[in-house]
Nucleic acid binder design. Structure first.
Lengths: 234, 234
DNA sequence: CATTTAATGTGTATTTTTAACACATTATTG
DNA sequence: CAATAATGTGTTAAAAATACACATTAAATG
């Protein structure tokens, strides 16, 4: 009685049964502002979670790569085009979405908040301090937690935090990003030493301006060092 | 002209458009045998990849958690019930499956090959040395590579390799699992020192048998130390 | 039973990495 | 010109990772 299935090699159900699941992508977009790590959230407009914060997400289109879907969401919502984005985990509890079966793949992204103040005030979009979010719509809090954990692992050995900063930054700013992400205090001297040792920074021979104290030097990320394949000879 | 959608809050397409994607789970099941890391594969039976090795996978059922789906696959295919399983990555290229749009979530698993020789010879199931697999059906080679990378990161700081061994094992066996996974040679003295330091092992006060040389002591994994939450005071 | 074999079991010195820590300097503010 | 609030710099100690050699033991051999 079973109908012939395109996926008969998979198992016993008919095609129809398998197309009752929708797939979405949710983006945890991290930014850094006022010394705090923030996440871009939006007021939820479905009745079950009315008024609660939720992540930016959308359903994946049938002819769309999931990675492309995540870039599309970022582009549509923040206007940013060329940003850091990494897949983290797929959340597939049966009842995670009240409207039906939706499995979602979570990505995290790192952006420089100043770069897109434009598109922001449009909706109910909002940069929320990560520390202060206790509750979110759907399973989004647990998605956020998972992405934050991944971010913390990542910053320990890969040069990704630069995506949170403007092109030019001081060592103080860099350190405070790390402190915000890792939620800890770091020793300033060891921090500087480590970064010069790793050769991740390029000295721009410029100084901070408009600070009420001795200005610090400005640096940029040594992108050349990480272009495509890391050079063997440093 | 658009039809009313359950997912209208997501975007602009109608429900119908979003249910053209199927979701599957693929399991990279690692085992250890003859000093080699192996992966459980099956001869592919769809025409585009006829005869090539593929991973064990199945479509996720509409009322099934994706994690449950991965456990189900493992149970169905290997008979094993209580095994280590970890989600790694979701692969969502549009044309990764010739039969249609199938997005797949990859899990890796660690099992003791000896524990389930039974169900094996059934089909075209086969334990294949990981080193020797150059090509696989679909994007399964890249799934395998991704899972192997993850496994290598994991074994560095978490006690997971014990899942590849029988309950009782010698330090030599333990070391050779690490060497097989990491594809490198380790110093025997430092290896032993490190494991005793970490307190991951329980000395069983038993010796190997039937070895043509001085028998080594047998140990088991110190599971108590990692029960639920790691104890603070060791 | 003595010898050979092939592994196990053990400790120390060296190097590298990480962590702890204090004071002089500089531009701005008042 | 004094006070402020940060920047910039080096050394020492502790911890972790690495390199390395020899005596011991049970089984197998003749």
């Amino acid at each position: 009685m079973k109908q012939i299935s395109r996926f008969s090699h998979f198992g016993e159900l008919s095609d129809k049964d398998y197309f009752r699941i929708a797939l979405s992508v949710d983006c945890v977009i991290f930014g850094f502002e006022d010394g705090e790590l923030k996440v871009l959230v939006i007021k939820c407009n479905i009745k079950e979670y009315k008024g609660m914060w939720s992540l930016l997400g959308d359903l994946v289109k049938p002819d769309e790569d999931i990675n492309s879907a995540s870039y599309r969401i970022l582009k549509e919502r923040t206007g940013l085009d060329d940003v850091y984005l990494e897949q983290v985990h797929t959340f597939g509890k049966v009842n995670r979405h009240p409207a039906g079966r939706v499995i979602t793949t979570a990505y995290f992204s790192l952006v420089n908040i100043k770069d897109h103040q434009l598109k922001l005030s449009d909706n109910e979009l909002h940069w929320h301090p990560v520390k202060d979010i206790a509750e979110m719509a759907f399973d989004h809090k647990s998605i956020l937690d998972t992405c934050l954990d991944r971010l913390r692992e990542k910053v320990d050995d890969q040069p990704v935090v630069f995506n949170l900063l403007p092109k030019k930054f001081s060592l103080r700013e860099l350190q405070s990003v790390y402190e915000a992400v890792l939620n800890c205090e770091l020793d300033r001297r060891n921090f500087r030493k480590k970064f010069f040792m790793m050769d991740w920074l390029v000295d721009l021979n410029e100084l901070e301006e408009d600070v009420p104290h001795r200005p610090g030097k400005l640096y940029k990320f040594n992108a050349a060092k990480f272009a495509k394949k890391a050079k063997k000879i440093s």
